[in-house]
């Protein structure tokens, strides 16, 4: 038995051939932008958090030294 729906799909596939490379390039471009943003966040996330902590008056390093001094009392 024929399947006209499948034949219609074939026609659409032929129609897509011309558009395909352009769409693929756009997807690849968008994917690499997402990847770049992800890499930047990976690299600088800790530093960004540090900046916000510093801006709000805290200090990551002083907290760390406080913890260390409490765990190693000299007196």
């Amino acid at each position: 038995m024929n399947n006209s729906f499948k034949e219609l799909e074939k026609l659409h596939l032929e129609q897509f051939e011309k558009k395909s490379p352009e769409i693929k390039n756009q997807i690849e471009g968008e994917t690499s932008s997402y990847r770049f943003i992800g890499d930047v966040l990976d690299l600088y996330f800790n530093k960004i958090v540090g900046v916000f902590v510093a801006m709000s008056g805290g200090s990551i390093n002083s907290d760390q030294s406080e913890i260390e001094s409490k765990s190693n009392p000299t007196d």
Binding site: L8, H12, Q15, S20
Partner: peptide, 28 residues
């Protein structure tokens, strides 16, 4: 899958340019 997605988009949206945009967004 891209061609098949495009085929469905064009059947439902009835416009080649919109189907192309939709294919890109769906693939993302």
């Amino acid at each position: 899958y891209s061609g098949k997605i495009f085929g469905k988009c064009i059947s439902l949206l009835k416009d080649e340019a919109r189907a192309a945009d939709a294919t890109q967004e769906i693939f993302m």
